[in-house]
Computed example of a mutant assay.
Amino acid sequence: MKKTFVLVVLFVLPIVVYLFFASGVNNFGKLPILTENISEARFNGENIRFADKITVLGFLGNEVELKKGNAFNLNQKIYKRFYEFNDFQFIMVMPIGTEDEVENLKRELSNLVDIEKWKFVFEEPELIQKLFNSLKTDIRLDENLGTPYVFIIDKERNLRGRTEDEDEGTKFGFNTNSVADLNNKMVDDVKIILAEYRLALKKNNANRNK
């Protein structure tokens, strides 16, 4: 028994402590709200909304071919893992004129997974910039109205992210050029916000049953 206890203390306990701290503060609380009341665009009359959905929002820009790698990274590392959750969606806001290129991209993405929850919407440059500006981040769209960063928007149209990220301080978005950023940070943050809403739903159901 003494040998077993010593082994647990020497080997198991340090691993447990390491995993606890390696998981980070974000994994044990709510994902911070960074910007409230993101603009609820009409998206050219399409019935696509932020409200009541957990949204991954992206801006691929005019040069869709150059952003395919970003889309595939996002598809493989985030979408495939979480798309079966209710009220979860991807919205990619695209400049008008990219429709044909987007159709090609969708065909390629659909070879890997059901892309029903990938939503592509096409807008004028002014509306794209207005929506992006409403995020109030330290990130900028490039000259093609694109960025490799994607953003988590909650059901109340708030931008979620990190206020004490070890690398960036305030982390507004996730870089789809970086598999490490998606794997090591975005996966965790999507888990947190999904768990947050699932817990709230359980509490609401419990209160109703009282």
Rank of each mutant, 00 (worst) to 15 (best):
M186D: 03
K155M: 13
F174A: 01
K67L: 07
K80Q: 15
N207L: 14
T4D: 03
V64C: 14
S134K: 06
E103T: 06
A22G: 05
V121D: 02
R140G: 10
E65V: 10
M92I: 01
V6Y: 08
R157N: 04
N104Q: 06
E166Y: 12
F21G: 07
D100A: 14
E116P: 07
I128N: 03
V190Y: 14
F20T: 03
L201S: 10
N70K: 09
F11T: 04
F21D: 04
N158L: 05
Y18W: 14
I38A: 12
E123S: 09
G29I: 00
V179H: 03
E65K: 06
P148D: 03
D181A: 04
D181R: 05
E65Q: 11
N183K: 03
M186T: 00
K130G: 11
N204Q: 14
F132Q: 09
S23T: 13
E156T: 12
D188R: 12
N207Q: 15
E168D: 05
L159I: 09
V17Q: 08
T147R: 05
K117F: 06
E65W: 05
G97C: 07
V190T: 05
E46Y: 05
S134G: 13
E101D: 11
V179Q: 09
N62P: 11
K67T: 10
F90D: 01
M186R: 00
S23I: 02
I152S: 10
D100Y: 06
M186L: 09
I128A: 00
K80G: 11
V8Y: 13
N209L: 12
I193K: 12
M1A: 05
N44D: 02
N111T: 08
F5P: 05
P32W: 08
D181N: 08
K68T: 05
T55W: 01
K53D: 10
Y83I: 13
N26M: 03
N175W: 10
N44K: 06
V121K: 00
K117G: 02
N111M: 08
V64D: 02
Q89Y: 00
G58T: 01
K210L: 15
V25Q: 13
L159V: 10
E126N: 07
V179N: 04
R157I: 08
K68Q: 12
I78N: 03
N44H: 03
F72A: 02
T4V: 14
R162G: 12
V64N: 08
K80V: 12
F122M: 00
P125D: 11
L34H: 07
V102H: 05
L141K: 15
D138S: 15
